Amino acid sequence: MIKKPNQTTIIASGHAQYSVKGSDIVCAAFSALITHTVNNCINVTTTDKNGTITAMISDSERIENKTLLSAFENTVNELISQYSQYITWC
Rank of each mutant, 00 (worst) to 15 (best):
L69K: 07
I11A: 07
L69Q: 10
I10D: 08
T67Q: 10
T47Q: 08
I34P: 03
A32M: 15
F30A: 09
V38T: 10
I11R: 10
Y86A: 06
I34W: 00
F72I: 01
G14Q: 13
V38G: 08
E64L: 11
V44T: 12
T45L: 11
E64I: 11
T8M: 01
E64T: 14
A16K: 04
S81K: 13
V38F: 06
N39V: 06
N65K: 02
I87E: 02
M56T: 15
M56A: 15
T46G: 04
S81E: 14
S84H: 09
M1E: 03
Q17D: 12
T75R: 02
T45F: 13
T47P: 01
S84W: 11
T47R: 01
R62E: 12
W89S: 01
V26R: 09
S60W: 04
I80F: 14
V44R: 05
E64C: 10
G22N: 07
T88D: 10
V20S: 08
V76S: 00
E78Q: 15
T67E: 11
I57M: 08
L68M: 00
T37F: 03
T9S: 05
L79T: 11
Y83Q: 07
S84T: 01
W89M: 12
G51K: 00
S23H: 10
N39P: 03
P5V: 03
F30Q: 02
K3C: 07
G22I: 05
I10R: 05
C41H: 03
I11V: 12
D24M: 05
S60F: 09
T67C: 10
T67M: 15
L69D: 09
I63R: 15
W89T: 04
W89V: 03
T35Y: 01
E64A: 08
L33I: 10
I87M: 11
P5G: 00
I2C: 09
D24R: 02
L68N: 02
S58A: 14
V44P: 00
